[in-house]
Each structure stands twice: as structure tokens, then as C-alpha cells.
Amino acid sequence: MFASHALTWEVTASRGFETAWTERADSVLRARGRAVRTVPEPYWVSYELETAEDFVTRRLRVTVETGAGTRVLDLRHDGHGRWTADGEPLPDVDGALDCDLGLCPLTNTMPVLRHGLHREPGDREFLMAWVSVPDLAVRPSRQTYTHLRSGHVRFSSGDFRSDLEFDDEGYVVDYPQLATRLTAR
């Protein structure tokens, strides 16, 4: 049985807001979200996320609307480490298990849940299929998640580092420099 939640964040990094409606059962997550952002230009983002077992991304479909028009990305993982964007192979992100939608606190959930890093000691490095917004380019991103204490995980990628707060269910509550949740689960 799926547990449903509506989560809303103020996304300070883009001077906007995001709401995600999530459904979770065992080790599977489904979500749909919408965001309005004003930096670097006004734009809307809509997305649908599906994971397979162990919170491994199966599909991320993203639509971005700007004053110049609409862009759509259909990012898929085949379950064997290979990715496609709109049907075209993405060899640079082969081996990644997770997507990471830029400026979206929800997509930090999958690796944290898979390894229980919000609850238990550990330090994990991941290759992510990182999706920048609003252009929807997909790039490889090396990211490290380190358990600090219950509910607190350090995120680092390159020179960037931030100590994130998660609730008991593995959803971001506070992501300094990026977003703060406005709603309870």
C-alpha cells in the first residue's frame, strides 16, 4: 500500500516554490511535482518521477515552460545502468542509479533512502544523471552523501557542500542554500 504526502518547499536558490505529491511503498517512490521559479528567468517546471525497487530511478519526465517556449525531457534508466534522454543513449551517465533534477529537493531522497543515510552512519559516493534547469541538459555529477547524525546528511559535489536535514521518512526538510520545506508531511 502506498503512503501519500504533499510536500512544499520555498526554493530560495531560484526565488520560487515547489510542491511534490509523493507515493511510497516499501522501496518504491512515485512523485509528481510543480515549481514556479524566477531565477535565472521566470519559468515553470513540472515533473513525474518513478523508481523501481531500492529507489532506483526508472523514469523522470520534465517539462519546462519559459517565455521562449516549452522544453520536454524524457529521461529513462533501463535497470541495468544505461540511460536515455528522449530515446537517445547517454553513455556519460551509464552506471548511475539516480537522477538529480536541478534545484529539486525531492531528488535527494532516493540515495538517502536506499542506504538509510538519514538514520544510520555511512558515507556513499554516487554518480548521478543530473538535469539542469531550465535548459534540461543531462550531465554526469559525482555526489557524496555522509550521515552526520539522525536526520542530518552532508551533501557534497565538487566544491559545493551543504548539511541537509531529512524527516524520518527521508524527505528533505531543510537544504541550506537551496530550499526549506513549508509543509509537514
Rank of each mutant, 00 (worst) to 15 (best):
R161Y: 02
R119V: 03
R139L: 15
A31C: 06
A25H: 12
T38K: 06
L7N: 05
R71I: 04
S4I: 09
D174M: 03
G81R: 06
V153D: 05
T12S: 15
E120T: 15
L60R: 01
Q143E: 09
E88N: 07
S4L: 14
W44M: 09
F160T: 01
M128S: 11
L60C: 10
S14N: 02
E165D: 08
R15V: 11
L101C: 05
L106M: 00
P134G: 09
L73R: 05
H77N: 11
V36G: 14
P176I: 10
M110F: 12
V28Y: 03
L136G: 04
Y171P: 03
R119P: 06
V64K: 05
W9A: 02
D78C: 03
T19N: 01
E120F: 11
R142I: 04
W83F: 05
A137S: 14
P89G: 02
S156H: 01
L7K: 00
T57P: 01
P89K: 05
R142A: 12
H77M: 04
V11W: 06
R15L: 13
E23K: 14
E53K: 11
L60P: 09
L49C: 08
L29P: 01
G81C: 06
P134H: 06
L101A: 00
L178K: 11
H147P: 01
E23G: 11
S132I: 08
C99T: 13
H115A: 07
E41Y: 05
G158W: 07
V131A: 09
E53S: 11
V36L: 14
T70L: 14
L178F: 10
W44Y: 09
G16W: 03
H5K: 15
D167E: 06
A129K: 03
E18V: 06
R139S: 10
E18H: 02
A129W: 02
A129V: 02
L29E: 03
T84K: 00
V153G: 08
S14A: 15
S46H: 11
D98N: 10
V28P: 00
H152C: 09
N108C: 11
R59G: 10
T63D: 01
P91F: 13
R114Q: 09
H80C: 13
L7S: 05
S27K: 08
V131D: 08
A52W: 07
L101E: 01
G79E: 08
L90G: 05
M1H: 11
M110E: 11
H115M: 09
R181G: 01
D167L: 12
G122W: 07
L113C: 07
S46L: 14
P176Q: 13
A25S: 13
P176H: 08
Y47N: 07
D74N: 13
T70R: 15
P42W: 07
N108L: 03
V138H: 03
H147W: 13
Q177W: 04
D123H: 12
E41I: 13
S27G: 07
G67M: 09
E65P: 00
V45K: 01
D74G: 06
G122I: 00
P105V: 02
H118K: 10
S156R: 15
E23A: 15
G67K: 12
A184N: 10
L60G: 02
V72M: 12
G81S: 07
L7T: 04
A52P: 00
